[in-house]
């Protein structure tokens, strides 16, 4: 059953992605000011949307662990955060490529970029912390605290383009203040979000299984040592 879900999602997401690529590369015209490179937005924005909301979701699962003390919440938090970190990396990398073309520099120290890099560092630290703690409940507690504190920074990053004048472009998505793109240009972003979200669900499921195996091995090891 689990395999069927994974394969089903993979096929659906793959097809959606392929169809979306077709739209992006063959149907849409180049953007007025940016030219062809603007298409990177179709990967950059979905990756960052998933990364940011993933960190927020990880925070919710972390709070779930703190309230219920059920290690499965912790496994969810860890899986979601790890996958989000991957998406954040993609977001940073695609943004950097775009910046090189448009601004002429690989990086700029404005508030949006800096705060997102800070998030990346914090949640990278989250993963490092998990490896540094042996006992699963202690690991879950500490990770949960870091997750909540890190999510405050994720929120700062989200709001950074509103609170400060940044070099990073102002909101373009219609859901945010001042957003709005040309006809037909916004939809592929959301389709990509859906496709990548499906992939991330697959990744989370795989990771969850790893966590469950790891817990089992840990328990067996403790039982063996207790003899």
């Amino acid at each position: 059953m689990r395999e069927k879900i994974i394969i089903g999602l993979a096929l659906f997401a793959g097809a959606l992605l392929a169809w979306n690529m077709n739209t992006i590369f063959t149907q849409l015209p180049d953007e007025l000011n940016q030219g062809a490179i603007y298409r990177i937005i179709y990967f950059h924005v979905p990756a960052n949307i998933l990364g940011m909301s993933g960190f927020g979701l990880g925070m919710l699962f972390s709070i779930g662990y703190l309230v219920t003390k059920d290690l499965r919440y912790d496994a969810l938090a860890a899986s979601v955060t790890e996958v989000s970190l991957v998406f954040a990396s993609i977001g940073l990398a695609t943004g950097s490529i775009w910046a090189r073309i448009i601004w002429g520099v690989w990086w700029a120290w404005d508030y949006r970029l800096t705060s997102w890099l800070v998030c990346w560092l914090i949640f990278g630290g989250y993963l490092m912390l998990r490896r540094a703690v042996d006992e699963p409940n202690q690991r879950a507690r500490f990770a949960a605290v870091v997750s909540v504190l890190g999510s405050v920074n994720a929120y700062i990053s989200y709001k950074s383009i509103e609170w400060w004048t940044t070099q990073h472009p102002q909101p373009v998505l219609s859901i945010r203040n001042g957003g709005g793109m040309a006809e037909g240009m916004e939809a592929p972003i959301w389709w990509n979000v859906l496709a990548l979200a499906c992939f991330s669900i697959i990744l989370v499921m795989v990771r969850m299984r790893q966590e469950s195996f790891a817990r089992e091995i840990d328990t067996l090891r403790r039982m063996a040592h207790a003899q």
């Binding site: 800096t114 705060s115 800070v118 560092l121 914090i122 630290g125 490092m128 912390l129 540094a132 703690v133 870091v146 504190l149 890190g150 920074n153 700062i156």
Partner: peptide
């Protein structure tokens, strides 16, 4: 933590960056 010397700076400095800026 047994890796205290490593983990403390790893966790603390990124959190401090917004404040420092």
């Amino acid at each position: 933590l047994r890796l205290r010397e490593l983990m403390l700076p790893t966790l603390v400095y990124p959190m401090m960056i917004p404040v420092l800026i």
